[in-house]
């Protein structure tokens, strides 16, 4: 799980062009949206694409995203339980 969390942080920084943020700056429980990393609605769509492209997970219910994308902890748990690749 730790390896997956590390991988996720690296991918989020790369995919969302978070140039001024390093892996070490993201805590596993930090909020990804709002006061945490400050991601926006377009970033949320990119995270949905990332789940599909890299882990074979298709989110069909947008409401799921709110919980899944709360933090690195919640994202990694969901991926570990649902990944198809």
């Amino acid at each position: 799980m730790e390896a997956l969390k590390q991988e996720l942080k690296e991918k989020i920084i790369a995919v969302l062009n978070l140039e001024d943020i390093a892996v070490a700056d993201i805590n596993d429980t930090d909020a990804l949206f709002g006061d945490g990393l400050g991601l926006d609605s377009i970033d949320a769509l990119e995270l949905i694409v990332l789940l599909d492209k890299d882990y074979g997970i298709k989110l069909t219910d947008p409401k799921e995203g709110k919980h899944i994308f709360q933090s690195i902890d919640t994202m990694s748990s969901y991926i570990a339980a649902n990944r198809t690749k």
């Binding site: 969302l16 062009n17 377009i42 970033d43 769509l45 990119e46 694409v49 599909d52 492209k53």
Partner: peptide, 9 residues
Amino acid sequence: YFPSPAVFV
């Protein structure tokens, strides 16, 4: 086929 919303905008 993975269209990027961030590019599309």
